[in-house]
């Protein structure tokens, strides 16, 4: 469990991942998602630096 997990405050089974390209057998991905608080349904423009 790394610092990202601790910040989330979930009791267990949260996994913080180095990126959204992940391998996990846990229910959650705890990664801060770059696109979480913006319009993502139609986000199709190629970003200059794509974060995974």
């Amino acid at each position: 469990m790394n610092t990202e997990d601790k910040e989330l405050g979930f009791p267990k089974d949260l996994v913080a991942l180095s990126s959204c390209e992940h391998s996990s057998n846990k229910p959650f991905c705890g990664k801060t998602h770059a696109a979480s608080a913006q319009a993502i349904w139609g986000l199709v423009n190629m970003p200059e630096a794509m974060e995974f």
């Binding site: 846990k26 229910p27 959650f28 991905c29 801060t32 998602h33």
Partner: peptide
């Protein structure tokens, strides 16, 4: 997905 919860497989 949010900063707190990115997915719920």
């Amino acid at each position: 997905p949010t900063e707190q919860l990115a997915m719920y497989d």
